[in-house]
């Protein structure tokens, strides 16, 4: 982990390719190094198809890289089997999705409690309620997603991501489905909540206005050779 003081996430020589329907192998990730420091807040930009979601999936352990190392909380999850990666994800990372992905049949409180069910720590109702209170939903604990506004749903998603005291939160275009009036509120909420909880934050965004607010901004094409090659018209088949 040369050059990094205390990374929460660190990728080394990570490669990931998919097989296209025609049998063609399409490289998606080819990254020498990428790291996210503890408590750091970073915006990740990139064109559509540049591999942003794949990168988040690899960091989260949902996908395994074809080669390379993926350190999360100091553990190389690329070496782990799926169940172990699931456990690391539950204990170390919080995820916020573009579509919020709340469980429709569960109340706001239960959505947060569900996230606590898969980690090493016992589900804590008080903490779940406190988190929802902190995002301004203390009076909506028993509401189901359909009974909440879009902005409120994304707040539940933020509270859920923080449920297990993660060391890093990964947010995949968290403002893309929200009207401009609420976008800034969500970004502020994410940044403030992560700061309060001491979690690093990696936000994927298309919006330069959003990216510009982060102390560190990176473009995926700058460190992912596969994305650069895909963008080049003369790329080999």
């Amino acid at each position: 982990m040369a050059g990094m003081a205390n990374p929460v996430v660190e990728l080394r020589a990570v490669r990931k390719a998919f097989v296209a329907p025609g049998g063609e192998i399409v490289p998606v990730l080819d990254i020498d190094t990428f790291a996210l420091e503890a408590g750091e807040q970073c915006a990740l930009e990139g064109q559509s198809g540049s591999g942003k979601s794949t990168l988040l999936n690899v960091i989260a352990g949902i996908m395994r890289p074809d080669s390379g190392n993926v350190f999360v909380g100091g553990q190389d999850i690329a070496r782990f089997d799926e169940a172990s990666r699931d456990r690391v994800r539950a204990d170390t990372l919080g995820l916020v999705f573009q579509q919020f992905n709340l469980l429709p049949g569960f109340t706001a409180l239960e959505n947060v409690l569900v996230a606590m069910s898969f980690g090493s720590v016992r589900p804590d109702r008080t903490r779940a309620a406190d988190l929802l209170g902190a995002v301004g939903l203390g009076h909506r604990l028993d509401h189901k997603p359909a009974e909440l506004s879009i902005g409120q749903q994304q707040r539940v998603a933020v509270a859920r991501a923080l449920a297990n005291r993660p060391r890093a939160v990964l947010a995949d275009e968290p403002t893309a489905s929200i009207d401009t009036r609420h976008q800034q509120q969500v970004i502020d909420l994410l940044r403030d909540s992560c700061r309060t909880e001491g979690a690093a934050l990696l936000v994927v965004t298309h919006d330069p206005g959003v990216a510009g607010q982060f102390p560190r901004q990176v473009r995926l094409e700058d460190f992912n050779r596969a994305a650069r090659a895909a963008a080049s018209p003369a790329r080999p088949a």
Binding site: E82, D86, L95, N101, F118, G119
Partner: peptide, 16 residues
């Protein structure tokens, strides 16, 4: 399937 995917993303194992 969508609910299962969400729970898996939250750290649920396949066995869960």
């Amino acid at each position: 399937s969508r609910d299962v995917a969400i729970m898996r993303a939250l750290g649920a194992r396949r066995s869960h």
